[in-house]
């Protein structure tokens, strides 16, 4: 009976810290990311996949609108489509990254990887759904039914992603199997510094307008360099409005980032629409 006594993973020790930025001004809501994700990650195929609340899909195309606001008027309201996957939360403590879902798993089926990606072992999961309860982004999905792939649909399955059993929780892993694939390729070519290898998740590769970019949050050369994103007035993260406090109230910003209930997601959304920034980041009624 070996308990889980892993050494702490410090963010500063991580060779890579993968993150994503999604420019919603460029997003047309076409759905390419969602289909590419489903194809890459072997999403199950049921007779009725429009069954939304039980649907198994890693990347959800959400429709966001401000028309339920009390003071919204016809003509002023807007809609936006939001590709939403796992935010790969880092937690508030860089010396001990604790996403909300990792600490609650009773069987260590989910953990933070050396690249900051929150992994999930399908075959370890007992399906208690405690992680689903803990996730503020509804990023985790449960296989309510046995995953099915009717007939020849099985031909299109990707061997890099194992097929989950019924009754387990599955989630987006930033397509980390593609990173492994890329690294294996370079190792075969004799490259030894495998951490230098970069990769692109399926959703980002499929985006027709280049609205999604992916890279290393710690790398100043990367399109998602975190320090740059933090200074970007268009940048916002889901559910928490902490980022908006950075300029208006630095003291409160510092305090908020230290307190525990800050998941610190690694997916950033960029938009110049004020209403959308408010909608995405919080519940404040404008």
């Amino acid at each position: 009976m070996s308990g889980h006594v892993a050494p702490k993973k410090k963010v500063s020790d991580m060779k890579r810290l993968w993150g994503m930025a999604i420019d919603l001004d460029k997003c047309t809501g076409c759905g390419a990311c969602q289909v590419a994700c489903s194809q890459e990650n072997n999403m199950p195929i049921f007779d009725d996949d429009s069954d939304l609340p039980k649907r198994v899909v890693f990347l959800d195309l959400m429709k966001v609108t401000n028309d339920n606001d009390r003071d919204a008027k016809f003509g002023d309201v807007k809609v936006a489509y939001l590709p939403k996957m796992c935010m790969q939360c880092a937690g508030n403590d860089p010396d001990d990254p604790q996403p909300p879902c990792v600490s609650v798993c009773p069987v260590v089926a989910t953990d933070v990887g050396d690249d900051g990606v929150v992994s999930q072992i399908w075959s370890r999961c007992i399906g208690c759904r405690y992680c689903q309860a803990s996730c503020p982004y509804e990023a985790r999905v449960f296989n309510w039914w046995k995953p099915r792939y009717e007939g020849s649909f099985k031909e299109g399955l990707n061997p890099d992603v194992s097929i989950a059993s019924r009754g387990t929780v599955v989630k987006c892993t930033f397509c980390s199997h593609i990173w492994k694939r890329e690294r294996d390729r370079l190792i075969a070519k004799g490259v030894t510094d495998i951490n230098a290898v970069q990769y692109t998740p399926a959703c980002v590769a499929a985006c027709p307008t280049g609205a999604m970019v992916f890279g290393d949050l710690k790398d100043p050369q990367s399109p998602v360099y975190e320090e740059k994103l933090k200074r970007d007035p268009r940048a916002v993260r889901l559910v928490h409005s902490i980022d908006a406090l950075r300029d208006t109230n630095p003291a409160e910003y510092e305090r908020r980032t230290k307190i525990k209930n800050y998941p610190n997601p690694k997916v950033w959304y960029l938009t110049s629409d004020q209403w959308l920034r408010e909608k995405l980041s919080g519940f404040k009624k404008s």
Partner: peptide, 20 residues
């Protein structure tokens, strides 16, 4: 077996559905 269609950031969603 064909398992995935990749485009170079210039198309639309439709090639992604080709495998289906």
């Amino acid at each position: 077996r064909a398992v995935k269609v990749e485009t170079a950031n210039n198309g639309c969603y439709r090639p992604q559905l080709a495998i289906q």
